[in-house]
Design a protein around this nucleic acid. Structure first.
Length: 765
DNA sequence: TCAATCCGGGG
DNA sequence: GTGTACGGATTGA
């Protein structure tokens, strides 16, 4: 293990509001319970030690009426009594009492008992009443102590283990595991196999044994929370593997054993155990809004797919294993190798955030940045300062958003994009816009220090030593960018202030108006402005230097701390409607934005046509489009496409009986097609569907055949694809380009059809 | 137009 | 029960 080369700020210099006030280094996991016991695992080199700690569970309250019934059992300013209270600095109406207890569950029960009596109905959760703020035990411990994970540790200092299941299917009720690939970042690699079904239980035991021996701090995989763990647990239950009453024990010794589900409500499940952090690379990847969040796709995108990567289709893996086991072993091992590399890259920001936010690492990849990180840091500061949390927010007007204005539609050339760098954070910092309720000024303190530190890390990353610095700066960016959303979250957030958030957006709109106004005065044609950026077209003959000069001129007019930046240039743009456009780069690359151009289930034939047609339209070769269109129509009619090329994919998430139940109230085309095709299905099945001649929407049985409904697809080509070019042509030009017949003698020559644009008079929305 | 709901991804 | 609300696209009132 290479020694840490990243100069981290010395512990003494860590800002306490940002990193918590306790500099304890090396924490890799924390478990805590409602009785105020905490288990803290700390790593020093290759050694991990477990420390027991205690803390006093706490709860902010607006008043004491719900605990009045405790009488003398509630003691003032005492830290050992079963129930106690201390008052915090703050006015009436704020959460100015800190209730503490030796047993958090007992305290909660008593509060709920009092509240139920007061309200005359059973209150089952503190969430159902106002006037309280509480968190879970681990968060409570971290906030109270000022500790955070990973201080003075880098990701590679921790022991990270990856495991990946290979199974005969997706459902543990009907499928089984036949292979588990395991590796860690200390050089361990292992393939476990269960050729026979009878060996599956032993294979699970072997996995658990390896986890105990390799003793990782962190367990990683791609989609581990929705696939590998539920599947593993499902199989262990069926096979009777695992400890009685505990199930599979992922926890480290010396603390409660087990593996449990966290966060049941609605969203996808996540998992925790004591002493190790279970993290899912898919959570981090989803946050990046890539076209696909799949492991293989993302690995290729990031260039981390190993040399000679084996690709196997999911459904074929089990059958391939029967004939070529070595190939599947290689495949499975490459999976965990890829996950390890991916985790290093995409989980680094969460790892860095764990040093700041009073939350366990495993929560951060899927926690919202505002409620999940910003708020806990603010509450920690108030708890530390003995300050009351704000009470109910005053009613305020509804929240206003950024402005989106379409100035021009159609085809424009020489397109430039300029944007205001980090507009909302800049306005917040330079105009000191903060929640009124933040008496301690923590909000702006965090914004200032995060921004300052981020610039340091960015500079360090640019100097060449990437890795940690890049992770740090992008982690900080996440938190900085969540600040505005946090203020605007209204009643949801303790420090929410819709009026302050509205001031930010209003100043944003004013800034954008200043930018568009100043640009227009400099002779450019505005196309679209959206929140913090603007597309415009520059006059013929302008060079890139001219483009940058005009942006610099406008930038100079803006207030200090607010910067307009050059963000890109393109040969031409088809502006379709707000947030829907196509860009053609100077290198010929096409970039599509918005649902109008990137409809998720676009059929291959139509997608191909649209891309070619757009390239011709934007590249000044309109005369090629009629040819392309007619050729596509003729090919459709002549059966020149296969069924597969006109088909689209569909996934069903309702089980068959579930659909049959809801069918009378709501029919859904895909399920109706399955019923018509005489198919049975279960939840999660995927089908490829197409319009079959004379049969309507049908399941694709014969991909190479061509019994598709040609008139339907010709119609769709016209209405669903060709129509996307409408704004770029005159009505006459459009009719001519997409004529159903060959041009006649008296038609105007196609070479005279020009791309057009027109300005749009629309009110800013 | 807006808010409920669906969905990803895994073999 | 080791927190609450993941976020973008789609759908339907």
């Amino acid at each position: 293990m290479p020694a840490s080369t990243v100069p981290q700020p010395h512990s003494d210099h860590l800002d306490p509001l940002l990193f918590g006030h306790d500099p304890t280094p090396g924490i890799v996991s924390v478990h805590a319970d409602h009785l105020g016991q905490a288990w803290v695992w700390r790593r020093e080199g290759e050694r991990v030690t477990l420390e027991h700690d205690t803390f006093r569970p706490w709860l902010f309250a607006r008043d004491l009426r719900d605990v009045e019934h405790l009488g003398t059992r509630l003691v003032w300013n005492d830290d050992v009594a079963p129930f106690s209270v201390r008052s915090l600095r703050g006015e009436e109406g704020t959460l100015r009492y800190l209730l503490t207890a030796s047993d958090a569950q007992a305290l909660r029960r008593e509060v709920l008992r009092g509240a139920s009596k007061r309200k005359g109905q059973t209150i089952g959760s503190l969430r159902d009443i106002s006037g309280y703020y509480s968190v879970g035990p681990v968060e409570g411990y971290l906030m109270a102590t000022g500790r955070t994970y990973f201080k003075s540790l880098e990701m590679q200092d921790t022991v990270r283990l990856q495991f990946d299941l290979e199974t005969t299917g997706l459902n543990p009720e009907t499928s089984r595991m036949f292979m588990i690939a395991i590796k860690d970042n200390r050089g361990f690699e292992r393939i476990l196999e269960a050729r026979k079904a009878s060996q599956e239980g032993e294979m699970i035991e072997a996995l658990m044994q390896i986890i105990r021996e390799r003793d990782p701090d962190i367990v990683e995989n791609h989609n581990i929370s929705s696939f590998d763990l539920p599947f593993l647990i499902g199989r262990a239950e069926r096979l009777g593997v695992g400890q009685r009453g505990v199930g599979l024990n992922f926890s480290r010794p010396g603390a409660p054993a087990g593996l449990w589900r966290v966060q049941d409500g609605g969203s996808s499940p996540h998992w925790a155990c004591a002493g190790r952090e279970i993290v899912d690379t898919i959570d981090a990847v989803r946050r990046m809004n890539l076209p696909s969040a799949g492991l293989k796709a993302v690995s290729q995108l990031f260039g981390i797919a190993p040399e000679g990567r084996v690709y196997l289709e999911g459904v074929k893996i089990a059958e391939t294993y029967a004939s070529q086991p070595a190939l599947v072993r290689k495949y499975a091992l490459q999976d965990v190798e890829e996950v390890e590399a991916l985790a290093r890259r995409v989980l680094a920001p969460s790892f860095a955030l764990a040093r700041m936010a009073p939350r366990p690492y495993h929560r951060l990849p899927y926690a919202g940045t505002a409620m999940g990180m910003f708020e806990p840091m603010m509450v920690r500061a108030y708890l530390r300062a003995g300050m009351a949390l704000p009470g109910k927010q005053p009613p305020s007007e509804s929240q206003q958003g950024g402005s989106v204005t379409l100035f021009a539609e159609g085809v424009l050339e020489r397109v430039v994009k300029a944007d205001v760098a980090s507009m909302y954070p800049s306005l917040i910092r330079h105009e000191r816009l903060a929640p009124r309720s933040d008496a301690l000024g923590v909000f702006l303190h965090l914004m200032d220090h995060l921004t300052g530190l981020r610039l340091d890390h960015k500079a360090a990353a640019r100097r060449g030593d990437l890795g940690e610095h890049e992770a740090m700066q992008s982690a900080m960016k996440l938190v900085i960018n969540s600040a505005y959303g946090y203020m605007g979250a209204g009643r949801m957030s303790v420090f929410g202030d819709v009026d302050a958030a509205n001031t930010v957006t209003r100043r944003g709109r004013e800034t954008l108006n200043e930018v568009t106004g100043a640009l227009a005065l400099r002779g450019v044609t505005l196309i679209e402005a959206d929140t913090d950026g603007v597309y415009f077209s520059v006059p013929d003959g302008w060079t890139e230097a001219d483009e940058r000069r005009v942006i610099a001129e406008v930038d100079a007019l803006l207030p200090t701390g607010v910067t307009l930046e050059f963000d890109g240039r393109w040969r031409a743009m088809l502006s379709h409607e707000t947030k829907n456009y196509a860009l053609l780069g100077y290198g010929g690359e096409l970039n599509l934005k918005g649902a109008a151009f990137t409809s998720s289930r676009g059929e291959p034939y139509g997608r191909g046509f649209l891309e070619e047609a757009l390239k011709s339209l934007l590249g000044g070769e309109i005369a090629r489009i009629p040819e392309l269109y007619r050729a596509t129509v003729e090919r459709l009619q002549a059966g020149g496409y296969t069924n597969a090329e006109v088909a689209s994919r569909a996934k069903v998430n309702k089980a068959q009986d579930a659909y049959l139940q809801s069918r009378s109230t709501r029919q859904e085309a895909v399920y109706e097609a399955l019923i018509r095709s005489g198919r049975t299905w279960k939840s999660g099945d995927r089908f490829i569907l197409y319009q079959r001649s004379g049969a309507g929407l049908s399941v694709l049985d014969d991909p190479e055949g061509c019994d598709y409904d040609a008139p339907f697809y010709v119609q769709q080509l016209r209405n669903g694809y060709a129509s996307r070019l409408k704004k770029g042509l005159s009505a006459e030009g459009y009719a001519q380009v997409f004529a159903q017949r060959q041009p006649g003698l008296f038609d105007r020559p196609l070479s005279e059809v020009r791309a057009v644009w027109q300005s749009v008079s629309s009110e800013p929305r």
